[in-house]
Design a protein around this nucleic acid. Sequence first.
DNA 1: GTACACCTTGTAGTGGCTACAAGGTCAATC
DNA 2: GATTGACCTTGTAGCCACTACAAGGTGTAC
Lengths: 146, 146
Amino acid sequence: MVNGQGDTTLSIGELASRSGVSAEAIRYYEREHVVPAAARGGPGRYRQYDEADVERLQFIRRARELGFSLDEVRELLALNDGSPSRPCTDVNRIARAHLAQVDEKLARLGALRAELDRVISECAGVVPVADCRILSALSGGPASDR
Amino acid sequence: MVNGQGDTTLSIGELASRSGVSAEAIRYYEREHVVPAAARGGPGRYRQYDEADVERLQFIRRARELGFSLDEVRELLALNDGSPSRPCTDVNRIARAHLAQVDEKLARLGALRAELDRVISECAGVVPVADCRILSALSGGPASDR
DNA sequence: GTACACCTTGTAGTGGCTACAAGGTCAATC
DNA sequence: GATTGACCTTGTAGCCACTACAAGGTGTAC
């Protein structure tokens, strides 16, 4: 895709492979107003992108990899696009709130893991189902309670 | 809800409060064939449950709390309901496979947490957005890479 | 002109529910 | 037997962040 000014225009597929975000996801982001609607040659024609769009999509991909929700990504993009002289207090707030959420999730998953491990460790896997400690734990609650 | 034989029949709401599973979730489990269709007084009439259903739902709730998927729960229930003399090899297999998945999730979340923490720790939260290390990490990838 | 890759929009599906809406049932009271 | 009111019924839509199609249109090279 090349226009008349020597600038290379990217198709959605090219943007996808350069940004590491699938074309379907890019269209989804447009629908969800995470990214602005792309320029077009006309209605029903192909979307046209440039290098700035590659960077924007990479930004989104990295934020998503760090677990930020699309709502948070929208906020981070707005801050990134806003006044460069404003202090990044809000960026910090969003990131720290997200970290707190991740920590909570880790704690819950860790507790679950410990309980699951405990339940499993009580069963050798060869006794009859009727005596299986895993099933009895599920049937009657934690063995330590009984 | 009382029938003519002295046995108490439970409504879905009573089953919900006794099992700790919401009535909507119980109906959902029935639709998804996690539990068999409940007895009824007739078409369109109320579902009728008993004590065995309370235990079954508690079993499901505990398995869900340990993070088992509904597919896994279906398997565990089938094993629990099957021949009591069969060895619990399959139960063990399912549980250990699930534990491995949980461990993987924990590892990924832990790595994400570390990266997020690293990114955040580089930013005091008061510098201009233009210099914010969180945003620059999102824009240009991990700082350690550059 | 024709082949072919890529794009377009729209819709449905994922998991495990929750949240409604519009109407029906049940038990108790009058 | 009528009414009240709590609870139930089915059906549908929504959540999150996409992915996976289907049917057809566009862009480009030969």
